[in-house]
């Protein structure tokens, strides 16, 4: 199997300069790899740094040391040392991040939010619309909402728009942070199905799932990050 993520000696420590320079070590010496078609579930108690690790993989948080080699367009790229536009290109084509929160942009409709990643990858506007509509329907978002900007949607509706956007064209690597929190059982099953499909199509998945049933149906492998916990 193709290695998609290679994490090498990653450590993270936050320094809070405005709170007396307090240093908060999170983890140290993190090493693992994830291959295409795998779903690695991060385990560990709340506060162990699961979300921080996921954000580091996305290039959102900067690790204190170490490197993260992403297979991007068939070539290895260290996302930690990559220049900003390379990171953006990696995110556009290789690396997707799914959270439970939608960043609402004024005046942009739900349909446009979901279409956007397809357009960015060069899909024709007609095909992008069709696929976006199919995905919103699959996630049971009422059709009357599709043309509206999600600012006024409920939390669960916004969440489903966000998931639709992420899975309308699954990336080769999908980083997933608690996607099913606050969804009802029916929609939760849809999300589990979407993750499984993405994985079967070859996506490498790294995720955090609070819900045990979801975790067990998604995971092909677990990583307990408590073992990297730095002795504070």
């Amino acid at each position: 199997m193709t290695t998609m993520i290679h994490v090498e000696n990653v450590a993270k420590e936050f320094t809070l300069h405005n709170q007396g320079g307090v240093r908060l070590p999170v983890f140290d010496n993190v090493d693992f790899t994830v291959a295409a078609g795998e779903a690695l579930v991060l385990a560990g108690a709340s506060g162990a740094g699961k979300s921080s690790l996921l954000r580091i993989l996305y290039g959102n948080y900067r690790p204190t040391s170490g490197r993260i080699v992403i297979t991007h367009a068939g070539r290895p790229v260290d996302i930690v040392s990559a220049v900003p536009r390379t990171v953006l290109d990696i995110r556009r084509r290789t690396l997707g991040f799914v959270s439970q929160f939608l960043r609402v942009i004024p005046r942009v409709s739900a349909l446009d939010i979901v279409r956007d990643p397809l357009l960015a990858r060069g899909v024709s506007p007609e095909e992008a619309s069709e696929r976006a509509k199919a995905m919103l329907a699959r996630l049971n978002l009422p059709q009357r909402l599709w043309e509206l900007a999600p600012a006024t949607f409920s939390g669960g509706e916004q969440q489903r728009v966000n998931i639709a956007r992420s899975f309308v064209d699954p990336s080769p690597i999908m980083l997933i942070d608690e996607p099913t929190a606050s969804l009802d059982a029916g929609n939760r099953d849809v999300v589990v199905g979407l993750i499984a499909e993405a994985r079967e199509q070859g996506s490498a998945i790294v995720g955090i799932f609070h819900d045990e049933a979801v975790r067990e149906s998604v995971a092909t492998r677990y990583l307990d990050i408590t073992e990297f916990r730095k002795a504070a």
């Binding site: 490197r67 080699v69 790229v77 260290d78 040392s81 990559a82 290109d89």
Partner: peptide
């Protein structure tokens, strides 16, 4: 793993 990674090369 000791591969060469050079993001600068990737740019068009």
């Amino acid at each position: 793993m000791n591969m060469q990674v050079n993001p600068q090369e990737l740019t068009l």
